[in-house]
Simulated assay, not measured.
Amino acid sequence: MNRELLKISQLKKYYHLSRKKMIKAVDDVSFSVKKGEVLGIVGESGCGKSTLGKSILQLTKPTSGNVIFLDQELTKQSAKEVRRMRRQFQMIFQDPYASIHPRMKMKDVLEEPLIVHKLGTRAERKEVVRSMLELVGLDVSYGERYAHQFSGGQRQRIGIARALITKPKLIIADEPVSALDVSVQAQILNLLADLKEAFELTFLFISHDLSVVRYISDRVAVMYLGKIVEMADTHSLFHQAKHPYTEILLAAVPVIGKGEAAELLFHNEESSTSEKGCPFYGRCHKREAICKDEKPLLEEVSESHYVACHFINREENR
């Protein structure tokens, strides 16, 4: 349980729009994930969560940095070597309908990864597909259906089954329940929790929904403009949030009887995209002069609780 399954070091993914304009989708991100852990990645749309997940899996090539998985440096491997490793790490997408071939029956969709990785005989693959359908709560007969014949929740179960069918060690779940009704969300989250125990899985769970992340995660990392600004175990982050951005995100979570003043804590200025200064400076209600000119580092302010904020780091060290 203490072994690091995944280690990310100074990972960057930049997109050059022109000679002078560049988007830093993932900007110098470092963290590790232990075997059997669920690390939640949360933040606003556009903060770089999905790009981070795709960069880790080498679905998009990082600009620089290191991704070490099962003691293998993925960023230095060839496409053929990464493809061979994909049996050990898989992705659950937000919209499974967009990633499922519309003219393939579900039994063929599920069998395809087994064929690609040359796992089992034809009879053995058919049996694995049947077992996996039952495991995710679908009738075996559904294998004869096409994607358009399923509801959103059922399609996501198919997506989960396809991700698990090669028995991977790591699953990156990219907004897996955001497109579903609340009642269906609960069913899928419970299914993922059960499968985590059954398969001894490690999850990187990406979401903009703090309630979902709180339910399923052991630790949470908060991203803002490509950077991790706070990271802690779930209880500490939700009860003792320290970064101003995290505080505002938590205050915006709907609670019965709570007012709607949370968003007023944001300043109306644009976020900083310059090389110097805190990227949250323009919107921060706790900003100080140093924040405009010096970029804060992600530092440990208490046991396993990391924050990138001049205000918090100086306060903690007084």
Rank of each mutant, 00 (worst) to 15 (best):
F31H: 06
M85K: 01
K24G: 01
G36H: 09
L39T: 01
T60Q: 13
R87F: 10
F31K: 07
T63H: 06
M22R: 15
G48K: 02
L17M: 04
R83W: 06
V38P: 01
I8N: 01
I8D: 02
K12N: 15
V33F: 00
P62F: 03
R83M: 15
R19S: 14
H16W: 05
D71M: 12
S45R: 08
E81T: 08
E44C: 04
G43W: 00
L11R: 09
G40R: 00
L70F: 01
C47V: 09
R84M: 13
V26M: 12
P62G: 12
K34F: 04
R83C: 06
I41P: 02
Q58N: 14
V29C: 10
L59W: 02
E81Y: 10
K34R: 14
E81A: 15
K21G: 01
D28Q: 14
Q72S: 10
K13R: 13
K49D: 13
A25D: 14
L59S: 03
I23N: 07
F89Q: 05
G65R: 11
K12L: 03
V33H: 02
K80Y: 05
K80R: 15
Q72V: 05
E37K: 03
Q88F: 14
E73Q: 15
K54R: 15
V82Y: 00
R87D: 05
V82D: 03
T60E: 15
L39W: 04
V29A: 09
Q90C: 14
P62I: 10
L39G: 00
D71T: 01
C47M: 07
G53Q: 10
V82M: 06
G40K: 03
K21S: 09
E81V: 10
Q77C: 07
M85C: 04
M91F: 11
Q10N: 15
K80D: 13
S9Y: 05
E73Y: 11
V33E: 01
Y14M: 01
L70N: 13
S78E: 00
I23K: 01
Q88E: 11
K24C: 07
G65S: 14
I8G: 02
G40H: 02
G40Q: 05
R84S: 14
K34D: 02
G48Y: 04
L11S: 10
S30W: 13
Y15W: 06
E37H: 05
S30M: 08
Q88H: 15
S50G: 13
K12C: 15
G48W: 06
I56F: 05
D71R: 13
S64R: 09
G65Q: 14
K12V: 08
K24T: 02
Q90N: 14
G43Y: 00
H16M: 02
K49W: 11
K20Y: 13
E44M: 09
T75Q: 04
K35L: 02
L57N: 00
V67T: 13
K12I: 08
E44V: 08
L59V: 05
T51H: 05
I23C: 05
F89M: 15
L59G: 00
A25T: 08
N66W: 04
L59K: 07
N66A: 12
Q10A: 14
G65W: 02
V42A: 14
H16F: 06
L70Q: 15
V67E: 06
I68D: 10
K76C: 04
K34A: 03
D27W: 11
S32C: 11
Y14H: 14
V26R: 08
I68R: 11
K13L: 10
Q10C: 10
S18G: 04
Q10G: 06
K61P: 02
K24I: 04
V29L: 09
